[in-house]
Design a protein around this nucleic acid. Structure first.
Length: 425
RNA sequence: GUGGAUGUAGCUCAGCUGGCUAGAGCACCAGGUUGUGGCCCUGGGGGUCGCGGGUUCAAGUCCCGUCAUUCACCCCA
């Protein structure tokens, strides 16, 4: 039997309604923060990611779903959301419009990785970007949005991990110092880190290997080598966070695997999730727009894994429960076809009146239809059979309380509407 | 990409050291009630035992491969 490709999955009811709920919360919170939705293509030119995310990053080096189309264009399914938003921002002249501009997006991302819990080859992200603000208030605004979202979904105990990786100028000075510090200890490093040492020494910092960890003990910290501007940004941001009572953990090993980041990088984690416990990852990318050929417009944002949020809410204090109950199940019991047609008409009327309503197209037995009504958690059953039709009435039955009564067919819609909303009592 | 675990019905699982037509619970359908759900009783449908190969008189069971899931590493959302 054909199955969904590795690392992909189907979302079935009732999980689809959990998705709808979580997406609804994301939209509402975004609205409160005045972020506007942007939608970009699912695939882009390969070059967009190669240039911005970085040629030497894992994402570009080995995780991209890249392909040639029929005329030989190099394309890739998007592995992340920021570069496409930056591209669209530039392409549509928003760089010369009012700034800052605030966007959110939701959609699938693709990375060719080995799947495990919380990590899939196709996953959905919610993300936000603020373009055109270098202010640390914007860093804090996106962080606050992420935390608000987690809180709204019942996730208590998330931890904010924070670092600054400086700007290209202070980073290059720092890299030189770091290489200088690590070079005598090369023997301690793992194979990966030996090659990283010259290309991307920052990545050695977050290597988990025993040897590498001991090598970096006492290594110079980026935070101590920030240039005056980057230092000022960091100080202001952490001060604003403190002023809002937001606690965070400074994590000098937090580097992140995308090259476009500058200054602030952060992750929001939720420990109960296990190995893949990063809910949100983001940071500032002041050089990204310029890298794409635009003016030097700064930006800051994050991506949030929706599958992980869903996994987390299931384990959290406020699990999302799917709303599946219906208001009325109409039971048609006709020896004559006109009875079925009448029942079907009643279903239409009830639905037009705003009630959630179901019936049995197979017109099974009374018992079978009652069972369905019960299974669907119907508040009421409305029975329409030969007797009722002859008397011009409909029998309505409260499924929870068990009572039933005859109601004139002309008023049944109103009676049911009142019963369901509780207005008639 | 590396290492470990797992794979039997829609779901959760049993199936001992290889041995008759592969089972249970739940779910589904029908009947017990010719028009009344939940509980109960009876019956029914549904399985290429992940897939492919091998060993054997005989494989769900043993061996190899493969695919998938899962846990950890790596990386991240």
């Amino acid at each position: 039997m054909l199955k969904a490709p590795r690392g992909t999955s189907d979302t079935l009811p009732p999980d689809t309604s959990k998705w709808a709920y979580i997406e609804g919360v994301m939209r509402q919170v975004s609205r409160r923060f005045n972020f506007e939705e942007i939608r970009t293509p699912t695939f882009e030119h390969l070059e967009l990611f190669a240039r911005t995310v970085g040629e030497t990053t894992d994402i570009v080096e080995k995780e991209m779903y890249s392909f040639k189309d029929k005329t030989g264009r190099d394309l890739a399914l998007r592995p992340e959301g920021t570069a496409p938003v930056a591209r669209a921002f530039l392409e549509h002249g928003m760089a010369s419009g009012p700034l800052p501009r605030k966007f959110f997006y939701m959609g699938p991302m693709f990375r060719y990785e080995k799947p495990q819990a919380g990590r899939y080859r196709e996953h959905r992200q919610f993300g936000v970007e603020i373009l055109g603000s270098a202010s640390p208030y914007s860093d804090v605004e996106v962080i606050v949005l992420a935390m608000e979202l987690a809180a709204e979904l019942g996730l208590t105990g998330t931890t904010l991990h924070l670092n600054s990786i400086g700007c290209p100028s202070c980073r290059s000075g720092y890299k030189a110092k770091l290489i200088e510090y690590l070079r005598p200890k090369t023997d301690l490093l793992c194979e990966d880190c030996k090659s990283r040492l010259e290309r991307n020494p920052l990545r050695v910092l977050d290597c988990k290997q025993e040897g590498c960890r001991s090598a970096i003990v006492g290594a110079p910290s980026m935070l101590d080598h920030l240039c005056p501007d980057c230092k000022a940004h960091w100080d202001q941001m952490t001060r604003i966070l403190a002023s809002q009572g937001i606690s965070f953990e400074v994590d000098s090993a937090l580097v992140r695997g995308l090259d476009y980041y500058t200054r602030t990088v952060f992750e929001l984690k939720w420990p109960p999730l296990g190995a893949q416990n990063t809910l949100v990852g983001g940071g500032r990318y002041d050089g990204l727009i310029a890298e794409l050929g635009g003016p030097p417009i700064p930006g800051v944002g994050f991506g949030m894994g929706i599958e992980r949020m869903l996994l987390a809410t299931d384990k959290g204090s406020k699990p999302i429960q799917a709303e599946t109950a219906i208001d009325v199940f109409v039971i048609g019991l006709g020896t004559d076809q006109t009875v079925g047609e009448k029942a079907f008409g009643l279903v239409r009327d009830l639905r037009r009146a705003g009630l959630c309503c179901e019936f049995d197209p197979l017109q099974r037995s009374m018992k079978a239809q009652m069972r369905q009504a019960d299974r669907m958690n119907a508040k009421f059953a409305a029975i329409l059979g030969d007797d009722e039709v002859a008397r011009g009435v409909v029998t309505i039955r409260s499924m929870s309380e068990g009572w039933q009564k005859s109601v004139d067919e002309s008023s049944v819609v109103n009676v049911l509407r009142e019963e369901v909303t509780g207005c008639g009592k």
